[in-house]
Design a protein around this nucleic acid. Structure first.
Lengths: 340, 340
DNA sequence: CCTTTGTGCTAAATCGTTTTAGCAAAGTAA
DNA sequence: TTACTTTGCTAAAACGATTTAGCACAAAGG
């Protein structure tokens, strides 16, 4: 049984009778640049392998100030939308040799701030953020202190930053048109987080689709909720739109939809006979729902790739004085029985 | 605009004209123990606050060998079961001042090993693992090298270790009895990962429930699948059990169930009229499924708490020569229309 | 008065890297 | 020959903390 004591650069240096610097140069691929002879470079590499050398990231980070770790702060990893995104993000991050630490804000700006502070202590190199309402100040702080970050899924008008979002307006517009093509005239929308520009844009797309198609916008059919997890509030809202004669419904988040579908059933509304439905975010649940639900599918993999690329460029690239990248991606649609 | 330069212990020491050691003692709560005068301790704390001092974890870790970070290696964070678990785990970890890095193995032992190696380089203090089939060697390595870890959701007979699992036998037994009480005589089970003891136990519980209730065990109704993500295979298996006259079905994982429900629908089997269904793991999807599905609910929060506690005790506690803790928790049940 | 004990603090080593500055030997150019 | 360049390497400082050993002084005990 080989008693693997963990070896350090110093061990390798001593074993070969050379200096630590030499070993470090070689191990970091700077052999050529630092004019280490080919023979010596090879010897170092061999010795590193036989001694089972593994770099100590703590030491490396302390010296370089880079931890090769990025933080992802989302509302809640147990929300499948974020979980899927997190998975793609980790894949992309690992391609660039970064690890991801996930933190949950629960859409509360205090938790959001607390997590940022905590993670900064741990010297993460940058952040991927879905900032809750009212967290402009935290973003400004990061900007002022030149900490690399990318905002995804949302955007703030008052704080310019690197952003990766979908075309929410267009997505809302297209989803609504689908319901219109279903011959629906009284289409409702159920929305949350309406202080977020991105969520507003979904509603704007919805409204414009109506007017452009000669339908009137009935304010009684536009419902703004405070939370997406309060079933009673959702039920109330749905009851109201049903009473107002809704025959079509656009949910703006997946979480809202899952609870909303429960409510619709409880209220005896049949899908799609009584009301056609389409939802943002594709959930597994939609495939086995009592009526399979159509969905606006966000390109999570592309979003992850762009987010990581933008972040890594900031971290490893220049001064971070590049113009802000505002990446906007198009969504896809999956049509199921809920709006045939 | 306050130009917050990040301050170090040295800065505080110089500002007060004392030594770094003194400052370190105070900031680590060792003032009393190290006989620092009360007045001085207070001065240090005040200065730390006004200078906005934040500990540098890299430096601390390098010196102490502890990173206050633990690794969670699961099959896939985008699987809601693991995502929920991850969320609870992070909550528990943060109570002990640990951050969690999540890695995905996709149930492949090579990826599992690769992630362990990667994370060990990063000096994580310990691991929470759901080891894939065939990863005994990796667990043994960790044991030999005295790296703290806890196995959750599964267990290996050949490698003794700290473990947190549910009582799989009992859960399988009870779930099956529920179907029997539904007057079902030809109950089937769909299983995956049958090389895992924990999964075998679910099947054993199933079988014993049948025999104890005077039913015969029909091997044609016991289906072992290789993967949980291959819909064609699942469909084939379900077709076979339907042909064999199944009127009850127990799914052993949530992922299996979601695909399985799609198949059942496609095959025209009505739930619960033609076949009663119950599933391990409660998914959001079950509440809005075409027939709401009953579920075996694992106590994820309790499991997280026990896992973190066990791990932290190893890390911070003694030599790690304590006897292995084998924690087994009971499950809960949620009954919905799929087996009334 | 001398010795012991206790109090309050500090200097310096250490963790494992990276990186700057520079040295000695060999090669090249005049 | 002299002077510059290139090649191949090293010594030592630094990153920011923790921790060990010990110093100086005061108080206490005989």
């Amino acid at each position: 049984m080989p008693k693997k004591k963990k070896s350090t650069i110093k061990d390798i240096a001593e074993a070969l009778g050379v200096s630590k610097s030499l070993v470090s140069f070689v191990l970091n691929g700077k052999a050529k640049e630092k004019r280490v002879s080919d023979g010596m470079a090879e010897k170092v590499l061999d010795m590193a392998k036989t001694m089972n050398y593994k770099v100590n990231y703590m030491a490396k980070s302390l010296r370089t100030g880079k931890s090769q770790t990025i933080a992802l702060i989302i509302a809640d990893i147990s929300n499948p939308f974020f979980a899927k995104f997190a998975r793609f993000l980790e894949n992309e991050a690992s391609k660039h040799n970064y690890k991801v630490i996930i933190a949950n804000s629960d859409e509360k700006k205090e938790k959001f701030k607390a997590e940022i502070d905590l993670l900064r202590n741990r010297q993460v190199d940058g952040f991927i953020l879905t900032p809750p309402i009212g967290s402009e100040k935290e973003l400004l702080d990061l900007k002022n202190q030149k900490i690399p970050f990318v905002v995804v899924d949302r955007s703030f008008e008052s704080v310019e930053s690197h952003t990766v979002i979908i075309n929410n307006y267009k997505a809302g517009y297209s989803a609504t048109e689908r319901l219109i093509k279903n011959n629906r005239k009284n289409i409702a929308i159920l929305n949350v987080n309406n202080q977020l520009v991105t969520m507003q844009q979904r509603v704007e797309g919805f409204q414009d689709a109506l007017t452009k198609n000669g339908l009137i916008v009935n304010q009684a059919l536009i419902k703004q909720l405070q939370f997406s997890h309060d079933k009673d509030l959702i039920k109330e809202a749905i009851e109201e739109i049903l009473t107002a004669g809704a025959d079509g419904l656009l949910f703006t988040t997946g979480k809202l939809t899952v609870l909303g579908l429960e409510c619709l059933k409880e209220l005896g509304a049949r899908i799609p006979e009584d009301i056609s439905v389409i939802s943002f975010d594709d959930m597994d649940a939609y495939r086995i729902a009592y009526t399979p639900i159509s969905a606006v599918v966000q390109p999570l993999e592309d979003m992850s790739r762009e987010a990581i690329k933008t972040l890594v460029d900031q971290i490893e690239g220049g001064q971070g004085n590049d113009p802000f990248r505002k990446i906007m991606l198009d969504v896809n649609f999956i049509y199921r029985e809920s709006c045939i």
